[in-house]
Design a protein around this nucleic acid. Sequence first.
DNA 1: CGGCAAGTGCTATAATATATCATTCCACGA
DNA 2: TCGTGGAATGATATATTATAGCACTTGCCG
Lengths: 169, 169
Amino acid sequence: MVQSIDPGQAFPARCDYHSGCRERLLSAAESLCRESGTSLTANRRAVLDILSESHHSLGAYDILERMDAGAGRRPGPAAVYRALEFLSGLGLVHRLGSRNSWFACSRPGEHRGRSQYWICANCGVVGETESEEIAQILPELALSMAFRLDRVSIEIEGECRGCQLQIKG
Amino acid sequence: MVQSIDPGQAFPARCDYHSGCRERLLSAAESLCRESGTSLTANRRAVLDILSESHHSLGAYDILERMDAGAGRRPGPAAVYRALEFLSGLGLVHRLGSRNSWFACSRPGEHRGRSQYWICANCGVVGETESEEIAQILPELALSMAFRLDRVSIEIEGECRGCQLQIKG
DNA sequence: CGGCAAGTGCTATAATATATCATTCCACGA
DNA sequence: TCGTGGAATGATATATTATAGCACTTGCCG
């Protein structure tokens, strides 16, 4: 087995009431903040809460719209982007460049920056894998080009198993 | 050697007057259009010309600005986006999701959709590699997840050799 | 208390991308 | 030669995504 994560488990269930993910994310957020001497403020927590409701990716303005659900007033876009920047800095959320959207990390605190993101074009759910091989190959390639590698983004678009079954059957 | 392209050659020279690239791109454009029964119209060619001037990536509006250099009048953004969509459909240009920008393909007509893009954060030049290993691993991973893989985007940000040398020395 | 740093609110605006519909251009057949 | 149909473009408006700038608040620490 060459995967550090069983790929059979990598693509999350379609259901939004996934268990464990939110709790894991929140506790990772708290410990990462503690470690880094920052704080999980109300805004940041609100954005994290919204993203952690499902494994779908959301646009920043989608997040913004959901932020008045509880409170009466809605912040400006900058508040959302500031929170997203903070959270992605800690690896708690990721940005999908191919769609200008954001989603909650499935494995916060682990394997920072070494994930592949699998995006179902039909249902919008995003899964993550961590391929050991890719984690090895890219630095080797970089070395052979004398390229200093800072950040990697791997986005794969296609259709998840669940959607294929549903559409076909 | 596991690379189909020598990685030592993958990152393009910093100079903008690179030889061969433009010619290769243009002739690939013509043959791809011929094969697909489409045509390389003036607009499309203008966008391709602008992108092929260097290995840098450009925003759509940067391209737009350069489109009045010769002619007196400038088209609207839609013209640029239409050309970009057409050209990227043929694999002649690529979009960088991490930066919302576009660049000319270094290897038009080959290995469609199997490239890795190496982006120098300092000089903005974009190089391409085609890793055989990655070309194998991703479909295997997809298979094990029962995920139908349609499109892959691999973007690596860092600093190229030339810029590292220049800054340090 | 006073001063600093981090975070936020608020407003404006920049940057990126698409929708819609009229018009042009050109190849092709009657 | 004319008309017709499809592809591409022009033109205008607008949607979507993201950042800038600056005042204010809050909490901490001397």
